[in-house]
Design a protein around this nucleic acid. Structure first.
Lengths: 218, 218
DNA sequence: AATAAAAATTAGGCAAGCCTAATATTACTG
DNA sequence: CAGTAATATTAGGCTTGCCTAATTTTTATT
């Protein structure tokens, strides 16, 4: 079994690879984990010996298949626990991340399988992030960033890329919830502000920063 | 916040004090934690500095009030998680201990309070062990060991002192469940075997070892 | 290409928690 | 009460996962 530290590395590398392509840099990892580069070098040497990551000198490193499967398993746990916290324990969607960060490190295959069944095999967590099944397969997610849409396009709001409390609370405040239909009414050239039409009625203006953190499907 | 290691010490010391009176010996703790005495000495020095335990040289040590409260909080978490695993996730009562050993170290007061409410404020875990409330108060438990009862006495089976899978499976096998009424029909002088009458009908013969692990109330 | 800046690694250290071996203390027993 | 056994403690070490400081390698800039 892997240590919590290793699991956090695996998860972070997985997410960096997803976001920025194949190879991941020591510095990028150090930044997202909030630790120093020397420590990352250290750890990656160990994880490389365990065949969880593969080096390519002066190109960075990436997960091996073994590492990828381990990472997905952790992500699965994290997201299932988030569903539990919101659906069953009635936490708000902006409160669950830190607790799930702890729960994801509980080691028990049977626990996570039973939790999955208890939650009725959810396909996405409270932030719209897809939950891989027991075999590590994601129900395909073809969402795009709202910021990539042209005026006139519309779709369904199905996820966020910023999981901070501040951002999630802002969405609550402007009345935007997962599943809502969203239409891009106008994009202001000058400041890149987006004017959106929510659920076919309310209109709100959001910054590029916000538009770039919203995932739209369909 | 305390480390998992510290929490395990706190819990173990609490249980030893409960079982054997005031002072706890280094050797006893080393034995139940499965680590060496020198390590225990080490750790207790640190925990003593943190005012979690109080030394009395050559008499052993015991929990301070601060330590006692911390221990009870961990026990509360452990037992609530056990209820969750059995009542909600449908684990068997002999499967939950190891998983709860991990879950008990999750740090979030809000989580445990919401879990408590979700489970409808249970007073005992699946093994009959009392669950302290949020203030650390136990609903009083006046159970006695079945092995201390004279022939003819009867009561309700409300708990166990042995939480091993082997023992719990044995109870399942002989058909003894929490809440059942039990009458001591006979105690054999020679080998200390107990003949019990379960639920007023079935009669079973159990060893002293078993009788000494069953808690009877009422 | 020379130089500066950025990225990565190496070397040496530290705290937590464990270990073994050696020593000291306390308790038990004849 | 001496001698042994049981208990405890000290001393020195190890691994994990982090740190700082120094150095090397790579990349970017002129």
């Amino acid at each position: 079994m892997h240590s919590s530290a290793e699991e956090n590395y695996l998860k972070a590398i997985y997410k960096l690879q997803e976001a920025n392509g194949e190879m991941v840099a020591t510095s990028a990892l150090a930044q997202v984990l909030g630790i120093h580069m020397a420590s990352v070098t250290d750890m990656l040497k160990k994880m490389s010996n365990k065949k969880l990551v593969a080096y390519q000198k002066s190109k960075g490193f990436k997960l091996t298949e073994k590492g990828r499967l381990a990472a997905i398993s952790i992500i699965r746990k994290h997201r299932l626990w988030e569903v539990f916290l919101v659906d069953k324990l009635r936490f708000r969607w902006d409160e669950v991340h830190e607790i799930a960060e702890q729960l994801e490190h509980i080691h028990s295959q049977e626990l996570i399988d039973k939790l999955d069944a208890y939650l009725d095999f959810p396909k996405a967590d409270p932030h719209g992030d897809p939950i891989p099944d027991a075999k590590g397969i994601f129900a395909i997610n073809k969402s795009v960033l709202l910021a990539s849409l042209a005026p006139g396009s519309q779709g369904k709001f199905t996820g966020v890329t910023d999981h901070s409390s501040a951002f999630l609370n802002y969405l609550d405040k402007i009345g935007l919830s997962l599943g809502d239909s969203v239409k891009v009414k106008e994009v202001e050239e000058f400041d890149k502000n987006y004017t959106l039409l929510l659920k076919g009625k309310k209109s709100v203006v959001v910054s590029f920063k916000v538009a770039n953190s919203l995932l739209i499907s369909e």
